[in-house]
Each structure stands twice: as C-alpha cells, then as structure tokens.
Design a protein around this nucleic acid. Sequence first.
DNA 1: TTCTAATTTAATGAC
DNA 2: GTCATTAAATTAGT
Lengths: 137, 137
Amino acid sequence: MDSNRSLTKKLVGSESKQGKGNRCLFDSEQLTILNTSFSEDPYPDFATRRELANLVRCSIDVISNWFQNKRARLPAKERRKILEARKSKNNALQNSSLQATTRETFYCVSEQSISYTQGTVLDGNPSVDTPGDPSQQ
Amino acid sequence: MDSNRSLTKKLVGSESKQGKGNRCLFDSEQLTILNTSFSEDPYPDFATRRELANLVRCSIDVISNWFQNKRARLPAKERRKILEARKSKNNALQNSSLQATTRETFYCVSEQSISYTQGTVLDGNPSVDTPGDPSQQ
DNA sequence: TTCTAATTTAATGAC
DNA sequence: GTCATTAAATTAGT
C-alpha cells in the first residue's frame, strides 16, 4: 500500500515545514547499534533498515539519513573503500545469482558495557565518531 | 567534511578563529553524568568540577564551560529558580559563620590521588532524564 | 527510485 | 552573547 514512502518529502507551495525543533539525537546505545551495523554493511537494504529502526526505536527515514550522512562524512580513503566493496558485492551477486540471503543479524548490546572497539572498523584508522577520549588539551 | 565549509562563514580575511577547531563533543554517558551533577548542583565548586573532569575524562575548563552554557541556556524560569536557590545557600553559609568566598582559590594539587571510579558513576541510578530524550534540555 | 554531494538548520562547545 | 563546529534533515543532480 503506502509502504514505499521514502526520504523525499515533497513539501510544495506554501508549506515549508522543515523539522524545526525536533531533531533526533542518538544516544550511545543507539550509536553502538548503528555503528556495528555500519561496520558490517554500510549499505543496508530496506529490510535491514527496518530492523534497525525497530531496534533503536525510530523511523526508517532517520535510519536512512544516518547511514547516508555516515557514509558522506567518512574520510575519503574509507569512503572509497566501502564504495569499492559495494561494487564488488554487486558484481558477486550478479555472478552467482544468490539472492535473499537469510541474514538474521541482531545485535543485542548490553546497556552499560559500551566498549570503544569501534576504531577497528573497516580499517586501522581512528574512528571519526564515538569519541572515547575527547581531546583534553 | 571540511571541504568548503568556509564558504558559509562570514569571516573574511584575517584568521581570527574563535572555535579553534577542537571542540569537545560529549557522548550520552558523559552527558548523563553532567546532567546528574547539574540537577544536584548547578553551581559546582572547584572540587566537584575536578571530580567531574576525571569522571568524564576531560579538562576542568571543559566542565566549567559546560555548566556555564547549561545555566545560560536554561529557560528563564528555571534559570531564575536555580539563581534563587544559590542565593539561599549563600545566605545560609553566611549565617553559619562559615566565611567561604564564592571564588575558589586552589593551588595545584598532585594528581596521584586521582583514581577513576568508572562504572559506579555518582549513583547507581542514572534515571535523571526521560529515556529516549538524549537532548539534555 | 537510490545514491552522492552540498546545503540548511538546530544544538552546542568554546570564548 | 558571539562564533565555530557538529549532525540531522533536506535538496539537487546523476
């Protein structure tokens, strides 16, 4: 029915509502879930995004926005890397006609045991967000 | 990320940068600690600020800035309330012949007595703000 | 449509 | 109170 409602909100004419005042800020639990998912797949499909939306209790649009901006704000080196990985995966899918892979990846993170192991994501680079040690000068 | 952000700046010519580029961003755990402390005392003394600095692993100046911004950006009603509460406390101090000035002149103490008591953070009950509202206002 | 890249807006740390 | 930066949200272009 109306399932295909995506990012594009056609606000036309006199209506220029632009989300003033309600900006969603993720807490560290949500960020842990999102970052973990991002490290495994920076380009999640709709089903994965819906699962994530359920996990962190927000809308799919917010999830999509987060992933897009997350990719956009990666360092150029890592951005290139995930883009190449995505191309390779697409090629592999086309070659082996393997679809509908049953990925049942749920990430149950405990609430207070957030460890800063996100620096080992995709590279040896220091992670761009989740600052475990904010710059004391 | 920082490709051409300077186009949106109204600062032309000389480098009179004010933000200095290194801005500390608190995560939710740190904000929980800070907000808890703020709810108990919006005007922490030097010892409390130093303790908080150790808890959230940043400098005392950062803590001071946070409290200053937090108080200044409080709604006017709340701001008036905490100010009255502070005046009442000062009057009580003066009445009890404890002449403590409002400025804290501390000398540099050795930092070998500083130990992290991380995990038991100020309280075992971090339910100060409503869950699902990471913005601390 | 999805995606990227750029822009806008609100929040906030630093001063 | 200002400025700078961050991140969510939005817009345009391919």
